[in-house]
Amino acid sequence: MLIYKKKDSLIYELHPVTTVSFIAAITLLALIFSHPVYLLGLLLAVGMAVAAAEITREWFYYLRFSLGMMAVIIIVNTIFVQAGTTVVFSGPRIPGLGRVKVTMEALLFSIAMGIRLVVAMSAFCLYTYAVNPDKVLKLFGRFGNRSILTAIMAARLFPLMIKDFKRIVEVYRCRGVKLNTGSWLQRSKNILPVMNVLLLSCLERSFQLAESLWIKGYGSGKRTFYNRDLWRPRDFIVVFSVLISLIIGIWAAIKGWASYTYYPRVESFNLGEIKLAVFLTFILIVPAVLNWGWKRWPLLKSKI
């Protein structure tokens, strides 16, 4: 039932720490940068990683979902912020707001923030579809035994409970209870016993779970760990590129190169800043480039 599905791509063959660090770096840099060229660079890098992971169709679902959020960003920034100077549209006077003025600066800022949102959404899309959640949870098991065990068990119970729900609904239907027809109130009344039975059945199962935990020796001593994920040369290459990009990104942010002045008037682009953004993008597309080589040259595949 998990929406993660393994595919034939290098992205799925990376150590979970490597993929998570790449995604975290992209998200962090997106939140730090406000310069449109830097944000576009991040978008290109994450887009290439998404394409390398062969999840472009799922990515489009994510982008479609972000349209609503993007609309709010555009409305709030263009209508409620009057800090720009280049007026492109002057609207009616609204009580409490004054005359609505849409400025070029506010529009550009909205577009840049839209790109930031798309970058963050794309990074999480990559996390959802290309990273095995079990492996990520197990990574943290070392630090939070109980929390991770609880989360893993909850994820395991999920499909079982869906089955339970379907089974209970079928039983009730066989008894003549109408769950899909009738008024909203009638259907709500009919679903009440289904939910109660589901709750009872889930609680009974939790007893069995507790018993098996007890039998397997939960809490009897210190927990041991066994990790089957190996660190391979490809992980070192990607982690190294992530570290370099983080150092460059943070350095650019400290120097003020990654930020951009939108208000009161947009500033011109500096060639030096753009060069750094291009360099940063080249570093961040390493996973996508490696995947390309991994598929093309069997020798490279065997070496990394």
Binding site: R146, L149, T150, A151, M153, A154, A155, L157, F158, M161, L198, L199, C202, L203, R205, S206, F207, L209, A210, L213, Y218
Partner: peptide, 10 residues
Amino acid sequence: IALISTMASM
């Protein structure tokens, strides 16, 4: 633990 995971799943 079993109860928390069950209710979280529910």
